[in-house]
């Protein structure tokens, strides 16, 4: 008894990848194990922690709650896609580095993608907005204080630079 496989094309960080996967393969597993994009992490596999958050057509989505086969027609951005083409950190990443917004780093990719989309909608968040923006993601290490600071810092960096980060480019088009 072997499983039926489907040929699907996943567009991730602007690159098309062809993979053969069974219907039940989670998008998170396809990204990590089939494409080797291990920056997306899995903390619960039931949609609660947010570590697996990626941007699907610019909107944050939990890749552990999606099948790979249902992502065929979408453009996906993972944490790897937030780094600028020249290898420097995007504004949200840079803000986390400056504000000590991470410790073990396991939850971080989910926060980075979530905030990237959040700032596209609310480019000048108040502290309350910033808290709201990350209120669906779990972090066991930082106590969130520095993550909230990072959101505000990222907004400032984004403003100053005027060049939108790769993730936001996508959601604005």
């Amino acid at each position: 008894m072997s499983e039926e496989l489907y040929d699907v094309r996943l567009t991730v960080n602007g690159v098309a990848h062809d993979v053969r996967v069974p219907a039940r393969r989670l998008l998170s597993d396809a990204l990590r194990h089939d494409l080797g994009l291990t920056g997306t992490h899995v903390g619960c596999e039931h949609g609660v922690c947010g570590a697996c958050t990626v941007l699907v057509d610019g909107r944050p989505a939990r890749s552990c709650l999606m099948f790979a086969v249902s992502a065929v027609d979408s453009s996906i951005t993972t944490v790897e896609g937030l780094t600028r083409d020249d290898g420097t950190l995007g504004p949200v990443q840079q803000a986390f580095a400056e504000c000590h917004g991470l410790q073990c780093g396991f939850c971080t990719p989910g926060f980075l993608t979530t905030i990237t989309a959040g700032l596209a909608d609310h480019p000048s968040p108040t502290e309350d907005d910033a808290r709201e923006m990350v209120a669906g993601n779990l972090c066991r290490c930082t106590g969130y204080t520095n993550i909230v600071k990072s959101v505000l810092r990222a907004a400032a960096l984004r403003d100053g630079r005027r060049t939108p980060s790769p993730g936001t480019e996508e959601s604005e088009t």
């Binding site: 291990t38 950190l89 990443q93 580095a97």
Partner: peptide
């Protein structure tokens, strides 16, 4: 001092145990 390890974590280049040997011998 800002943390040196953050550079790889922030780029999605951390290597946690479930990431080990993915790709090459995956």
């Amino acid at each position: 001092v800002q943390r040196v390890e953050d550079q790889r974590f922030l780029r999605g280049e951390g290597r946690y145990v479930d990431d080990v040997l993915v790709g090459t011998t995956g």
